[in-house]
C-alpha cells in the first residue's frame, strides 16, 4: 500500500501540519504502508503533488486543508484508482472525499470552562491566520461560553502568521492587559509564544490540536485534542479494505477523533461543579443530543 500527504506548511509546526505528518507515520507503522509527503505552497504544486501520487499508483493521497479541493477533484478525475482525501472541505467525487474534524465540540467545552472559572468575565483568543477552520473553533468557544453566561466577553486577536512567536506573545499580553484571564490559541508553532506569555503572567490557558498540557504544565488547564493520526489510519484502513465510500466524513467525539484532555495537575483547581458540567455536556455531544455550532465551511 502506498500513501501520500501534501501539507500547506512545514511539518514541524507543532500544530496542524505536524499532526498530519504524525498520522502519515502512524499509517506506515500500523499498516506497513510506503509513505511520502510534500510541503506545497501553490495550487500548481498541489496539482503536481496529487498527480505525481496518482501517476505512481498511490492508493491514497491526503491534501491537508480546504485549499486542496480543486486539485483533488482534478487529479481524481485523471487517476481514478487513487483515493484523494482533503482534510476539511466539501467536494465529493467518486474517489474524492473530505474528512471534516469537529474540533469545535472540544473548543465548545473549553468555552464553558472559561466562562465558569473566569474571575474577570473575559477570555481571549489568539489566532495565527484567519482560516475558516480556526474561525470555526473560536465560534464554538464563544458559543460554549455564552451557553453558561450570555454576558461573558470573548476577545479575539490574529497575528497574521504562524511563525512569529514574539508577535503571538505580544498579542497574548495585550489580551491579558485587557483583562482576559483565560486564553485559547490557534497559532500552531506560534502557540509557544502564547504559553510563554501565560506562564509569565500566571494566566490560565488551553492547548489546541495536540495534547499540549506538558508544554506549559503550570498554566494549561486542558487541551482540545484532535487525534488526526487516528483519523488518518482510519481512512487508510477504509481504503485498504475497499470500504471507502465517497461522502463527507464527519469525525468528532463520537468517532473518538476529538476529545478534551484535562491537565491532571490543574484539574483540582477547577471547581468540581464545572468538571461535572463539562463531563455532562461532553456526553450529550457524544450521544448526538447536542449539536455544537460551527462555521459554515
Amino acid at each position: 500500500m502506498k500513501v501520500g500527504l501534501l501539507t500547506p506548511g512545514s511539518v514541524n509546526d507543532n500544530g496542524w501540519n505536524a499532526i498530519a505528518y504524525e498520522g502519515l507515520q502512524q499509517i506506515h507503522r500500523q499498516l506497513g504502508a510506503q509513505i511520502s509527503y510534500q510541503e506545497t505552497k501553490t495550487p500548481a504544486e498541489f496539482e503536481e503533488g496529487f498527480q505525481s501520487y496518482g501517476a505512481k499508483g498511490f492508493d491514497l493521497a491526503f491534501g491537508h486543508g480546504f485549499e486542496f479541493q480543486d486539485a483533488a477533484l482534478k487529479a481524481g478525475a485523471q487517476y481514478p484508482k487513487t483515493v484523494f482525501i482533503t482534510t476539511s472541505g466539501k467536494s465529493v467525487a467518486p474517489n474524492v472525499s473530505p474528512m471534516v474534524f469537529e474540533l469545535e465540540q472540544a473548543t465548545y467545552l473549553l468555552g464553558i470552562i472559561a466562562a465558569r472559572e473566569s474571575k474577570s468575565g473575559k477570555a481571549g483568543l489568539v489566532g495565527g491566520i484567519k482560516l475558516p477552520s480556526i474561525d470555526s473553533t473560536f465560534l464554538a468557544f464563544k458559543a460554549g461560553a455564552h451557553s453558561v453566561n450570555p454576558r461573558f466577553e470573548v476577545k479575539e486577536v490574529y497575528t497574521g502568521n504562524f511563525d512569529d512567536l514574539g508577535a503571538a506573545r505580544l498579542a497574548t499580553l495585550s489580551l491579558i492587559n485587557a483583562g482576559c484571564d483565560f486564553i485559547f490559541h490557534q497559532a500552531n508553532e506560534a502557540g509557544r509564544g502564547v504559553f510563554q506569555a501565560c506562564t509569565e503572567r500566571k494566566v490560565r490557558c488551553f492547548g489546541s490540536n495536540k495534547n499540549q498540557n506538558d508544554l506549559a504544565p503550570d498554566v494549561i488547564v486542558a487541551s482540545a485534542v484532535l487525534d488526526v493520526p487516528k483519523a488518518f489510519v482510519y481512512m487508510a484502513k477504509l481504503v485498504r479494505d475497499k470500504q471507502f465510500r465517497p461522502q463527507v466524513y464527519w469525525l468528532g467525539m463520537k468517532e473518538g477523533i476529538v476529545s478534551l484532555a484535562w491537565n491532571d495537575r490543574l484539574e483540582p483547581t477547577i471547581s468540581p461543579a464545572t468538571v461535572e458540567e463539562v463531563a455532562d455536556v461532553e456526553k450529550q455531544i457524544r450521544d448526538g443530543k447536542l449539536e455544537v455550532p460551527r462555521g459554515k465551511f
Binding site: S36, Q38, E45, E48, G49, S52
Partner: peptide, 15 residues
C-alpha cells in the same frame, strides 16, 4: 523547484 518537490516526495528532503 519542481525537482525539489520530487526530492521531498521520494527522499523526504526539505523543499
Amino acid at each position: 523547484a519542481t525537482g525539489a518537490g520530487e526530492l521531498q516526495r521520494s527522499a523526504s528532503i526539505s523543499s
